[in-house]
């Protein structure tokens, strides 16, 4: 038994320590930011904060919540995530049903699958896309954040692969009982697909919540930004015009701590869905990538 040999035991000790350090390395930057966000301005500005708050205060969070532009961007993000995810799920759920048929069962399937695959592997590039958004009069509209990404081809394929795993007998039984395709989809497939839909939904939520570039491209002013775009402009581009800070309050709080608080609030929804996501995504990923 190799488990008992001395060299394997020594290896196990080093392996455990190595993996422990690696796992810490993955979250330590987030912990640091969290510590900064709860620290006092003076400590943060003097770079005294490491992994634990210095002179604990909620000042940065208060300041963040008091900023109406921040709150509004939070609302835009929630709206786009809810609407976008619902639309993506509905579209993927419906399209996956015919796509899951065999080519011989449904003659149109071949052409449809090529239309989906081609759109996945080829695109017109940024500029033509931008022009289309303009021509469709979506520029500056909230819907520019929802409609262009509504069809998620990757998630549609995952859904399709899930449908293919549903026993044929279930579907045949429904057909024999006189149910049409729509009835079969919504009465038979929907209930058994709930775990798959939950998985895709979580992926879609994370995708929408994290999207920032569309907000930068298609909205005209900072009060239309979703949160991710707001954070991008304030923290990355250091554009402080949307911070609504007057000089007096600027002196009281530190940009460092407020940034840290904003980063953490921006990451929070993802951190919240993450435990559920983790339970599902291994299955979802394997579902889509490895097939016999």
């Amino acid at each position: 038994m190799y488990h008992k040999t001395l060299s394997y035991r020594v290896f196990t000790v080093f392996n455990t320590i190595g993996l422990l350090l690696l796992s810490i390395a993955c979250i330590i930057p987030l912990v640091h930011v969290l510590a900064v966000s709860f620290s006092a301005k003076s400590a943060a500005d003097a770079n005294l904060v490491n992994l634990w708050p210095v002179q604990f205060t909620l000042e940065a969070y208060k300041k963040t919540i008091d900023n109406p532009i921040f709150l509004h961007s939070l609302w835009v993000s929630v709206k786009r995530t809810v609407l976008g995810t619902s639309l993506t799920l509905l579209l993927a759920f419906m399209a996956a049903y015919p796509l899951a048929k065999e080519n011989s069962e449904f003659k149109g399937r071949t052409i449809y699958s090529w239309i989906f695959v081609f759109a996945m592997v080829f695109n017109g590039g940024l500029v033509p896309f931008y022009m289309v958004i303009q021509k469709l009069h979506l520029m500056g509209s909230f819907w520019a954040l929802v409609l262009p990404g509504a069809v998620n081809i990757y998630l549609t394929i995952l859904m399709m692969n899930f449908f293919r795993g549903i026993p044929k007998e279930l579907q045949e039984a429904a057909m024999i009982d006189g149910a049409g395709h729509f009835r079969t989809l919504f009465r038979i497939f929907l209930p058994v697909s709930m775990p798959a839909i939950a998985t895709l939904g979580l992926f879609s939520i994370v995708f929408h919540w994290n999207s920032w570039f569309d907000g930068l491209l298609y909205t005209n002013s900072s009060n239309q930004y979703p949160l991710a775009t707001f954070l991008q402009t304030v923290i990355i581009q250091r554009d402080l015009t949307s911070m609504s800070l007057d000089p007096a309050s600027m002196a009281l709080i530190s940009q460092k701590t407020v940034n840290a608080a904003q980063i953490f609030i921006g990451a929070m929804p993802v951190l919240l869905v993450y435990p559920f996501l983790q339970k599902f995504f291994v299955k979802g990923l394997v579902l889509g990538s490895v097939k016999e």
Binding site: L91, A92, F116, G124, P128, M131, V132
Partner: peptide, 27 residues
């Protein structure tokens, strides 16, 4: 026989035409 299957892909198809294939024409 197959209209429900076509109808199910149709919404996704319209979105793909608008936001994937229309930009391709822009090249």
């Amino acid at each position: 026989k197959y209209w429900p299957l076509h109808l199910m892909v149709l919404p996704s198809l319209l979105f793909l035409i608008a936001f994937s294939y229309l930009p391709m024409a822009g090249i």
